[in-house]
Amino acid sequence: MLNADAEPPEAIRSYASSPTTVVVLFSEPLDSAEATVLSHYSADRGLTFTKAVCQPPLFDQVILETAFAMDTAQVYQLIITGIRDCGQNEAIDPSIIKTGLAVASPPGNCVINEILFDPGANAYDYVEIYNHGPGLADAGAMYITNRNSLGQFNAPLLISPEPYLIFPGDYVVITESAAVLSLNYLVRNPLNVLELGSLPSFPDDRGSVVLLDATGQLLDEVNYSRNWHFKLIDNPEGVSLERVDPLGSSADPGNWHSAASTAGFGTPTYVNSQFKKQEEIGVQIKVIPPVFSPDNDGRDDITTLHYKTGEQGLVATIFIFDAAGRLVRNLVQNELLGDSGYWNWNGTDNANQLLSVGIYIIQTELFNLVGNIKRIRSTVVLAKKLNFKKVL
């Protein structure tokens, strides 16, 4: 009998339910015994795990206990390898997902970033939330509502019934039907769409969109108008209003613009077509030499990552993976950069053991003061010199 399920499981998202507990959600039920093997799970920033439990009855969640409390200010990279489902389909490529411990988001960190209040036929309103950081936010502790004719909040609706982390730089969309949204717009990140049974009423002419935290504190509010649309659009039906600058005022009509026609009149789950482009992180990284042989012969025993940047306040973290995608070395952790500098790698892993010959991927993650992130991947070859014996 053929196995109808040929797809391996995939880690889809994660969150910390306490400072020492990480929950990982998978795309399907797992082999519950195999999922408890700790060697399948690793993380950056020195985070280690002491126990793994595959959660019944669906067995599509794994609970990881950490060796120490997580820092609420940190985003952790979780690397998962070798996981199998009940049909013994094994994930060959590693799953790398973010996790962390969210705290109450202060006003202004998460903003209302895009609104579709006048959908086309057989479509639904949507609201997009953007976290420009710093810090992690939890959609499971946020509510959406509007104001009545007296200016009072109507009954707020919980955005997510379970914890759902919104990381810095993430775009999360709230709507009544993810399927209908995908039929009408390009949805680049389907996992970032949250469905509600019904949204608050957002009239086609003017109205309000309000974001609250679990205590009722106002996080953001937009009192929109149909007149905010681009004046040359005759009929704004099906056209979303996009925020131009996430750091600009929510109440400023000049900070909102109709989504571009070239973007399909809406950009749910990704950067707005009318986004005010901030300066990208400018940095150059060179790996010299690209092939090295750590055999202590005095020649190319180490490889050096040279960096040069014209921006102050950059923080770097560097991971090194083998050709199979396994994390083998945390080379740098949250290092504050100068204008230029370098890091050396001698070909050893986190246990200070010399790695085998092969291709290795160096992933450099850079963060700046306003929460922008840039990832640079480089390759390097760890080689071994051949010894030739003279034949007489």
Rank of each mutant, 00 (worst) to 15 (best):
A4L: 15
D5Q: 15
E7S: 14
E10K: 14
S14K: 06
S14N: 08
Y15V: 00
S18Q: 03
S18H: 04
P19N: 06
S27H: 03
E28Y: 06
E28L: 11
A33W: 06
V37L: 11
V37W: 00
V37P: 04
G46A: 05
L47N: 01
L47M: 13
K51H: 12
A52S: 05
V53T: 13
Q55L: 15
P56W: 01
L58T: 13
D60I: 08
T66E: 04
Q74M: 06
Y76A: 00
Y76C: 01
L78G: 02
L78T: 03
I79E: 08
R84Q: 10
D85F: 12
I96S: 03
I96F: 07
I97F: 00
I97V: 07
T99L: 01
T99H: 03
S105C: 10
G108Q: 06
G108M: 09
C110P: 11
I115C: 03
V127Q: 07
N131L: 04
P134K: 10
G135E: 06
G140F: 11
A141F: 02
A141V: 03
I144A: 07
R147I: 09
R147E: 06
S149P: 00
L150S: 15
F153W: 13
N154S: 08
A155T: 15
S160V: 02
Y164L: 10
L165D: 08
P168L: 03
G169L: 04
Y171K: 11
V172P: 02
S177H: 08
S177P: 04
S177E: 07
A179R: 10
V180R: 14
V180E: 13
V180W: 09
V187K: 04
L191R: 14
L191A: 13
L194M: 12
L196N: 05
L196W: 02
S201Y: 11
R206F: 14
G207T: 07
V209T: 01
V209C: 08
V210P: 08
L211S: 06
L212E: 00
G216T: 07
Q217C: 10
L218V: 05
Y224G: 03
R226T: 07
N227R: 12
H229C: 05
L232A: 13
E237H: 06
L241I: 02
E242L: 06
D245K: 08
L247S: 15
L247N: 13
D252W: 05
H257Y: 11
S261F: 12
F265I: 08
S273F: 10
Q274K: 14
K277F: 12
E279S: 15
I281N: 09
K286D: 14
I288C: 07
R299C: 09
T303L: 11
T303M: 10
L305D: 02
G310T: 12
A316K: 10
I318C: 02
F319A: 09
I320W: 00
L331F: 01
Q333D: 15
Q333E: 09
Q333Y: 04
E335Y: 13
L337R: 09
D339M: 10
D339A: 14
G341F: 04
N344H: 15
G347V: 07
D349C: 08
N350T: 05
N352Q: 15
Q353M: 07
I361R: 13
T364G: 00
V370L: 06
V370N: 12
I373T: 12
K374S: 15
S378F: 01
S378I: 02
T379M: 13
T379G: 07
V381D: 07
F388W: 10
L392V: 11
